[in-house]
Computed example of a mutant assay.
Amino acid sequence: MSSFIAVDWGTTNRRAWRIEDGRPADVMRDATGILSVPPGGYADAATAIRARLGDGPLLMAGMVGSNRGWADAGYVPCPASLAALAARLLPVAEDAWIVPGVSIVEGQRGDVMRGEEVQFLGAVAGGLAPADALMCQPGTHCKWARVEGGALTRFSTAMTGELFALLRDHSLIGAAMRGPVADGAAFRDGIARSGEGDLTTALFGVRASSVLALRDDADAAAYVSGLLIGADCRVRVRAGDSVHLLADPALGALYTAAIEALGARAILVDSHAAFLAGIIRIWELQA
């Protein structure tokens, strides 16, 4: 069939597109992530998507394929290609399939992703990134991926966004972290301080700076963000690198600042366009 419904189904949000002849013809967005679907409720949730976008086959990716979603779609091990993902689609209902995630095991280190693999590989398939690239999708759990020859060969996950939220909401320094986060002097100071290699001491320094009036509390959140993002980037980025960022403009600007401070280049990629390019190619490969 030339027409189908592509669904990017995450933990808290969901996007779905009606695809006709390889192009998006209609779209819906809502907050019906997997946490909002009651046990046994996925068939009804799929019916609601079809009621909005038309009665067509569903091809889904993301946390809908986790052990907390509709069904566990498993993982394709690295190196993973779009063809490998297409070969392992999990049928969950009539005319409804879920794309598997991707896993990596290196010695005692293991890692997994769900949904980001479609975007990383889709960026290449859609001509948004080269076949050999370092990619990053910032967020609660920041994904860093290496694509070689159009296949996802290595990746790692950093809990950067979650750590920031935990520090702000549940730590000693959280009381000072009530100001906005933006690229500015405090954020850049955090990036620079992250290069000293003592992150935990730098974090406690937020408390000391507040007590001793060394830094305005209004700048604390931006400074901590700079510390965390700076530390995240330093592990993976070297001077002269090009990093393709699949991020919204606000978070993309922060990571761009950190990447450029390390002497590298950041290239922003539309993550929705990347997802569409990837899911459409998977559909074509399995047809």
Rank of each mutant, 00 (worst) to 15 (best):
I19C: 07
I19A: 12
G22C: 13
G22E: 04
R23Y: 09
R23T: 14
A25M: 00
A25C: 01
A25P: 07
D26R: 10
M28S: 09
M28C: 14
R29W: 12
R29I: 13
R29E: 13
D30M: 05
A31R: 14
T32S: 14
G33F: 06
I34M: 15
I34D: 03
I34H: 07
L35T: 15
S36H: 08
S36A: 15
V37E: 02
V37P: 09
V37T: 11
P38Y: 05
P38D: 11
P38V: 01
P38N: 06
G40I: 11
G41D: 14
G41H: 09
G41K: 06
A43V: 13
T47L: 03
A48N: 04
D55C: 08
P57A: 15
L58V: 07
L58E: 00
M60V: 10
M60P: 04
A61I: 03
M63Y: 04
V64R: 00
V64Y: 09
V64M: 02
G65N: 07
G65S: 13
S66N: 05
S66T: 03
N67K: 12
N67E: 06
R68P: 01
R68C: 03
A71L: 11
A73D: 00
A73E: 08
G74A: 14
Y75E: 01
V76N: 07
C78Q: 02
C78V: 15
P79N: 07
S81M: 07
S81F: 10
S81K: 06
L82E: 13
A84K: 14
L85E: 03
A86G: 11
A87H: 00
A87Y: 02
A87N: 12
P91E: 10
V92G: 06
V92M: 09
E94P: 09
E94Y: 06
W97H: 13
V99E: 11
V99C: 12
P100N: 03
P100L: 14
G101C: 05
V102K: 03
S103K: 12
S103H: 07
I104A: 14
I104N: 01
V105K: 07
G107T: 14
G107M: 12
R109S: 13
R109E: 15
